[in-house]
Design a protein around this nucleic acid. Structure first.
Length: 427
RNA sequence: GGAGGGGUGGCCGAGUGGUUUAAGGCGCACGCCUGGAAAGCGUGUUUACCGAAAGGUAUCGAGGGUUCGAAUCCCUUCCCCUCCGCCA
């Protein structure tokens, strides 16, 4: 949610920001609604003031037994009543319309975010690790997994439809090992607190992180009104919903390993084979809650935490700074990590780290009490994947495949694999 | 699923139709006092909007209603809690 006060001060800056995201100018229309609402409030207040003063006179008149005087004022006040009621109704409608408009507008990109329309305009800012030279034609992960007899799309489809998978045996264990490794890294070395959060949440939570009101079609919903989290960003960020934190306890860093549920509406036909795009996948998420002055630096730190996972797994990747048109709704700045997939001969997104400023905090009413000065301020929120577990498994299969179709287990995962050094076909 | 009890400011908590401001406490801020501190005393302390200011208006989970006037009465709804039942 953008700050209406800032919008009043510099409407052009907001229009420029929205233009970067391909939106038409909004500020004038919003300010018009704002002015109308405040003018109405003022009129309403004047009428209420008059009514209150008159009501007090009635009380006094009745106390002194002057029924006639009381009756005269009562008649005058009743006339005000209709006017006030109508004004209140009008005010409610105007406020609702303005709130919805504000809630439906995305965050303003930071100044350094490259201007661009879509992912083709993202800017590569670094590569880490060299893609391996294969002496044979590297396969895609789904061929590898199916040949190993441990990645079963057909059985999953039979019970759940397309975009589901069942992992078995050592691949199922590998997924667990990946998640364990990531969680241990983020908690033991980077100071994130592990959280096991709810996977079903209410409207307010999803509004807080801004999937609502605009992106309902991307989410699954239960019949009694719960939303299945599309990412643990929702659960973790809402840990501080409505909170007033003390500055001393910031930054708060939380991590969680959760399933993520996405309807993938609008992505029909894309990545239909394999595990790249599923309705359900698991992810280790990172969320930081900071003071405003720490927000930007925290994004760099968080991105490095995510990069470290790939480095330890010795997976080649590149780091992208997202352009304005490709950033998520809440973000001011986003870095994507794209892992090299030799089977696809392409870099594919495996992490996305975003700094949201106070955009989500304002929606959640997440504040902190500063050490110096008075008044509570909104915190900054950040979220990032550290990493998408399913896609990490894909990357390991493709990068660690051997000519005979077996998969070498990355060194850092061996402690989690119970002595297994190589994943082989089931006997 | 059954039966109850509740939602009041940063926090706790009083308040079942009126006659300046939602009592009181805690916390916090400032001041007085002190060699310094504690204690004590005093002042202030939701948010939004209008106003140069003084001040005003709204805000007691949300939305309707009754009334000249609602935190208070009525209706609807959301949320939290307790007990019972069922259950990993």
């Amino acid at each position: 949610m953008i700050d209406l006060k800032l919008l009043r001060e510099d409407p052009d800056a907001f229009d420029r920001g929205w233009a970067l995201r391909g939106l038409p100018a909004q500020a004038a229309g919003l300010l018009e609604q704002d002015v109308a609402l405040r003018a109405l409030k003022t009129r309403l207040q004047e009428a209420q003031n008059e009514r209150n003063a008159a009501s007090k006179q009635i009380g006094k008149a009745k106390a002194s037994g002057d029924e006639a005087a009381a009756q005269a004022v009562i008649e005058r006040v009743s006339a005000l009543k209709a006017e006030i009621q109508q004004g209140e109704e009008e005010e409610r409608q105007l406020a609702e319309a303005l709130d919805l408009a504000l809630a439906s507008l995305p965050n303003i990109p930071a100044a350094d975010v490259p201007d661009g329309a879509d992912e083709n305009d993202n800017v590569e800012i670094g590569r880490t690790g060299d893609p391996r030279n294969f002496a044979f034609d590297p396969k895609e992960h789904f061929d590898l997994g199916e040949d190993l007899g441990q990645m079963d799309f057909e059985t999953a489809a039979a019970m759940s439809g397309s975009r589901f998978v069942a992992l078995k045996g050592q691949l199922a264990r590998l997924e667990r090992a990946i998640a364990q490794f990531m969680l241990n890294l983020h908690t033991d070395e980077f100071g994130y607190e592990e959280v096991a959060p709810p996977f079903l949440v209410r409207d307010e939570a999803v509004f807080g992180t801004a999937q609502l009101p605009k992106f309902t079609e991307d989410l699954f919903r239960t019949e009694n009104g719960y939303w299945l989290i599309p990412t643990a960003e929702v659960s973790l960020t809402n840990m501080v919903r409505q909170a007033i934190l003390s500055e001393a306890e910031l930054p708060l860093r939380m991590t969680a390993y959760t399933p993520c549920f996405r309807s993938e509406a609008g992505s029909a036909g894309r990545d239909t084979r394999g595990m790249i795009r599923l309705h359900q996948f698991s992810k280790v998420e990172l969320v930081s809650i900071t003071t405003p002055d720490q927000g930007e630096a925290e994004l760099d730190r968080m991105t490095e935490c995510a990069q470290t996972v790939l480095k330890r797994l010795e997976l080649p990747f590149r780091t992208m700074k997202l352009c304005s048109g490709d950033m998520g709704f809440s973000a001011r700045r986003t870095y994507d990590l794209e892992v090299w997939l030799p089977g696809q001969n392409a870099y594919r997104e495996i992490s996305s780290c975003s700094w949201c400023g106070d955009f989500q905090a304002r929606r959640m009413k997440a504040r902190f009490k500063p050490n110096e000065g008075k008044g509570n301020q909104f915190v900054h929120t950040l979220n990032g994947s550290g990493l998408a577990v399913g896609r990490t498994l894909v990357a390991i299969l493709e990068n660690y495949q051997q000519e005979n179709g077996t998969i070498a287990v990355p060194d850092v995962l061996k402690p989690y694999m119970g002595g297994v050094e190589e994943i082989v076909a089931r006997g």
